[in-house]
């Protein structure tokens, strides 16, 4: 059973997906469903002895097409919609012990091409308004399978966080004639203290408004709204800065740092969003090597983040770390 239920107070959709309760939970290495299928061994999700990058539809999807019948009837106040969409799993490597940080720049460059292909293909479906590419890494984030992988949710609506960014970007553009994100990049460059690293096409910073201690945003220096707009050189530069940033994270405390990585780009609902600007956001859940940052009362109940650190200090810390 799966459906979209309208939250009338927050004016946003909640996805119910009760079948996901039965999904695979931290299987032993020899029974990883994302590894290649070895001769004589149990069949995994990938019926091949090896692979480079693989994408497949999630066995336990929150959204699917055609969508299953709703479990309940809606009303004028409590609206219900079919949970139509697509949930995909993106396998970065056939090596179970790998991570995105451990992969080569070439593999990350290839992954960017796969992301672009999925954005185009899923975004072209008439029931998909937004293609959301992300990775949850680490048990602390709730990852149920440790094999290196990311996910894609193709939503039948534009998600609320993206809507807020779009609204802010449109308002700024109407008031100033400029792109909000381009102005943010300008502000970060003028100040300089929050920049972690950069190359010809991208800039990574702990932004002024960071909500997590080690939150980093990677901004495209050129005003571009989505992955298909990037040139070959920009894709290489994105792969390089991603690799650099991930190595810095892993070298921060000498451990494979858990994080959420999310790509924010244009919706695919057929409307124009010339004022929006591509970027990637990282939210690592740790505030020190031993302490987690919890989304507690203020964050979950009031939507107010409390960051116990200064972005300027955390950026300096990350800037000093060698990306080796």
């Amino acid at each position: 059973m799966s459906e979209l239920r309208w939250h009338p107070l927050l004016k946003e959709w909640v996805i119910t997906a009760t079948h996901r309760q039965d999904r695979t939970f931290l299987p032993p290495k020899d029974y990883c469903p994302l590894c290649p299928t070895k001769p004589g061994a149990f069949p995994t999700e990938v019926p091949a002895e090896d692979y480079e990058i693989v994408v497949f539809e999630n066995k336990f999807p929150s959204l699917q097409y055609p969508a299953p019948e709703e479990a309940v009837e809606g009303s004028e106040l409590y609206m219900v919609r079919p949970a139509a969409g697509v949930c995909e799993v993106v396998l970065y490597s056939s090596r179970h012990e790998s991570t995105l940080a451990a992969e080569s720049e070439e593999t990350i460059r290839n992954l960017i091409e796969v992301w672009t292909d999925r954005y185009n293909e899923l975004g072209s479906k008439d029931y998909v308004d937004y293609v959301f590419i992300f990775e949850n890494k680490g048990k602390e984030i709730g990852v149920t399978i440790t094999h290196p992988h990311g996910q894609i949710y193709a939503y039948p609506f534009v998600p609320p966080m993206i809507l807020r960014e779009l609204d802010a970007s449109r308002e700024h553009h109407e008031n100033t004639g400029r792109c909000l994100m381009c102005d943010i990049i300008g502000e970060e460059k003028r100040d300089g203290r929050r920049i972690v690293c950069e190359n010809g096409s991208f800039l990574a910073a702990v932004p002024f408004y960071a909500r997590y201690p080690y939150e980093v945003h990677i901004f495209s220096k050129a005003h571009k709204g989505s992955l298909p707009e990037f040139t070959d050189q920009e894709r290489w530069d994105l792969a390089k800065i991603l690799k650099q940033m991930l190595l810095k994270y892993d070298n921060l405390w000498g451990m494979s740092l858990p994080y959420m990585m999310v790509l924010h780009q244009n919706p695919t609902n057929g409307e124009r969003y010339d004022y929006y600007h591509f970027h990637i956001e990282f939210y690592p859940p740790y505030r020190t090597k031993e302490k987690l940052k919890y989304l507690a009362g203020s964050e979950s109940g009031a939507g107010v983040f409390i960051n116990d650190t200064l972005a300027e200090e955390k950026a300096a810390e990350l800037r000093e770390i060698e990306p080796k």
Partner: peptide, 30 residues
């Protein structure tokens, strides 16, 4: 980039993305 789509259990789609040849070409460009 080469794409190969196949069907897997539960009427789902799986796509193999192969780059071996492309990567060598890109490496020269890089």
């Amino acid at each position: 980039m080469k794409k190969e789509k196949i069907g897997i259990s539960g009427e789902r789609t799986l796509i193999y993305y192969n780059f071996s040849k492309k990567t060598k070409e890109s490496e020269e460009k890089k």
